[in-house]
Design a protein around this nucleic acid. Structure first.
Lengths: 152, 152
DNA sequence: TGACAATGTTAGAATACTCTAATATATTCT
DNA sequence: AGAATATATTAGAGTATTCTAACATTGTCA
């Protein structure tokens, strides 16, 4: 019953749309993902078969309990990654968002838990200057653009 | 001319095999990636069309200059991610390797450069105890297993 | 209410990736 | 060299993902 990357992407899109819309149409998903409606229809029909989504002929799209659970997991992963890229690495909002989208699939629970700790730790660092002095890693070395000198 | 994730995976596999083997066969790649030989043949034929690989009928596989360049880039990304997971997040070697494989595609150059800085910074932290006291993030909070209390 | 616009669906196609089964070529060993 | 083994290739199939074109249904507003 493992979902593909694309299936997870569609679930996440539906989940995110449901924050702003009370009912979700095929066209909303298509617009949001930048694909055509037939593409969405085909994705949704696969998700219906996996029991992740409900949708009747010409009807609205709903996540099932299983679909909501899967979507929530992907979304939480996405959110933590976005925070990490933004707060710890100091990337712009757009770059953080974009990288989070690329990376959010297949990363382990363990990584997410430790990223949470790292973000937490860094937030503490930033407020207690005697302990550690940085806000994000770009702030620590604003001048040296990449030359940290590793080979492995 | 953008490569797919799988194409990058095959290039990286060839690149890594070339460290230990002086000539690379279809069967080496198949074994290394856990796929069948016809699958490799089909991947290689696509890579030949993109000018990333050379291989003659029943012959050995070679990366072209472009192939080597692409493979090197993926491999460097992989290596930095592995270091980050191991040194900063404190994951096991196997978990670091596995997560690096999943994440290495599509992550931006900017992220890699800042991860380098972060690893560098952490290495410095570890040696200068007055500045910051950790070896890896799991070491800082060895007890609290995940409860850092965020909601976003 | 009927026409037009918006939305949804089906049909048919293409690409990427994988497999198994069958066949062809190379390599190795006696 | 000839047989046995290893390796490579082709053929054919299946799934996932996307598209365009054609058609169906729904919604809106004049």
């Amino acid at each position: 019953m493992k979902l593909t990357i694309k299936e997870e992407d569609y679930l996440e899109t539906i989940y995110r749309l449901s924050a702003n819309l009370d009912s979700i149409r095929i066209s909303d998903i298509a617009r949001s993902r930048g694909v055509t409606m037939p593409t969405v229809i085909s994705a949704i029909s696969r998700l219906k078969e996996s029991g992740m989504v409900n949708q009747s002929y010409y009807g609205k799209v709903y996540l099932t309990a299983a679909g909501k659970e899967a979507a929530t997991e992907v979304y939480e992963t996405h959110s933590i990654l976005r925070l990490f890229f933004g707060e710890v690495l100091g990337l712009s909002m757009e770059a953080s968002e974009e990288n989070a989208c690329k990376v959010e699939h297949g990363i382990s629970r363990e990584v997410i838990e430790r990223l949470k700790k790292l973000i937490y730790f860094m937030r503490n660092c930033s407020s207690k200057a005697e302990n550690c002095r940085f806000r994000n890693i770009d702030n620590v070395f604003p001048q040296s653009d990449g030359e940290t000198g590793f080979n492995q």
